[in-house]
Structure formats: C-alpha cells, structure tokens
Design a binder for these strands. Structure first.
Lengths: 127, 127
DNA sequence: AAAGTGTTCTAGTATGTATAGAGCAAACGT
DNA sequence: ACGTTTGCTCTATACATACTAGAACACTTT
C-alpha cells in the first residue's frame, strides 16, 4: 500500500489518508474482507500520530466503507453485489453537486463533464 | 437571489454561501458582467457578518469565477466561449476524484456514475 | 502469559471559523 | 462638490477543528 501525504496541503492529513485508502480500495489493492494495518503501525509507517490514523479510519467507517472491530482491527467491507444503497447515493450526490456547478460555471458542457468523469474513472483504476 | 444557509451544518457558512453563489451562476440567474451585492448588504440580508461574506467572495475570486474591484464591487466573470482553461480543468479533476473513488467503492459502475452526473447537471439547471 | 488491538483520557499548540467594531481611502450617485 | 457606499485593514474575542503526545484500560490474538 503506497500512501503519500502532503503535510503542507490545506487538506487535513486525516482526510488525505482517508481519500487515499478509498482510492486503494477502488483500485482493487484492498478487497472486501482484507484487514487494514493497525492504527499504531500505519501511524509509525507514515510518521504521523496514532490518533490521526484513527480519525481517518472512523471517517471510512462513517461512510460504511470499512468496519472497525474494537480491540481487534479494521476490515474492508464487502460491497453488496446488487445496487448501491439510497443513502450512499444521496451522500455522493450532495458531495459532487457543488463541483459540477463549478464545472458548468467555468464553461464545461455536459459532454465535456461526462468525458472528464470517464477519464477519472480510468485513471483511478490504472494507478 | 435565494440563498439558504444552515448554521448547524458541518460545512462552514462561507463555503455554503460560495457554493450557492456558484449554483446561482450555473443556473443562469447571474450572468457575466452582473454585479454581486456588496458584502455589507448581503451580510445584512443573510444575517451574517460582513467578513464571512467577504471570505466567500474571495473564494470565488480565487476560482476566477468573479472579479473583485476594490472600492467598487464584485462582478461575475464572463466565461470564455472557447474551451475551459487547463488549470481550471486540473482543479476540478482534483476536487472530484476522491468522490468518484468513493462511488466506485460503494459499488457504482461507470454507467451509473455517468447517469448520476447527468441527472445532477439537469437538477442544477432546473432549480 | 505476552504482545497487540482499538478506546479513552488529559494536555498542549496551532490553525480555522465567525463575530464585532472601527477606521481608511477610493469610487460612486446625485 | 458632497455625502454615501465600497472593499480593505486592523484589533479582539470566542469557539471549533486539527494534530501531536503520552498514558492507561480492557479485550483479542498468538
């Protein structure tokens, strides 16, 4: 698992870590049932505090991407093979809407936006 | 201009305001050349502090969506009719990528994602 | 039994958010 | 020309968030 944190970014460290873990799962590097490193070991690896890693893990748990078993560890959730859940879809919509609006304002047409999305999907799976 | 702020949201007020202004522009309620309300009057309208509105305006200026003329006011930029600028495209990609990764992890397939994007685009223009 | 686990607690520093009030110099409207 | 309005700047306060640090606890794992 290759994670790179930019300490000087305006994005909080725990959020950077959470995003990169999500991308690793999207890439298939981590599959449902896989165990994440312990908060202590990952913190040591990345040179950050245990509590910061813990915060990132709870962010993923809140999004129901992993589950945390107290006193044991964190495991990647197996995604339901059927359709995406309504509350998940709703949350993604809320998160993505302001960015789509920004893209429209900056002059992107619907086709250009869809093309960008497709290329981003490919880039995630390739990396 | 109809703006609704949720003070109890975990999203900062200035960010909520900035997003809603962007959506208003995307909707066509505000067009290139239009003047935004002064920071004082909008703050009074929305029951918030002048500095908070000022911060939202500078957020839009940073994204080159409006321009701020000192001692005069804020004006919506006219978007170039040709293609979107490379740096804007890059910024939107960076903003949208982690959300796309989240959608993939939660089980959305590329077609479902593109369908969601299209429906969001329509919802922005309709509201 | 020993090591490892997430959790919880206190503590401290730094940064971000939001409010408040005041004053400035330039631009604007009449 | 004059008074108002404008964005900008400054000081200040209050609160929340981010990050680090160290310690202890109770349960799980080996």
């Amino acid at each position: 698992m290759f994670i790179q944190i930019e300490p000087e970014s305006d994005i909080p460290i725990y959020a950077q870590l959470a995003s990169q873990l999500i991308e690793a799962i999207a890439r298939g590097e981590l599959v449902g049932g896989d165990a994440l490193p312990s908060v202590r070991s990952l913190a040591a690896d990345l040179g950050m505090n245990m509590h910061t890693v813990n915060k990132a893990y709870h962010e993923l748990e809140r999004k129901e991407i992993i589950r945390i078993v107290p006193k044991s560890g964190a495991i990647v959730n197996s995604l339901s093979q059927d359709e995406i859940r309504g509350d998940h879809l709703e949350r993604i919509s809320v998160e993505i809407k302001p960015i789509i609006a920004e893209a429209i304002v900056l002059g992107m047409k619907p086709e250009a936006i869809n093309k960008l999305i497709s290329s981003i999907i490919l880039s995630i799976k390739e990396e």
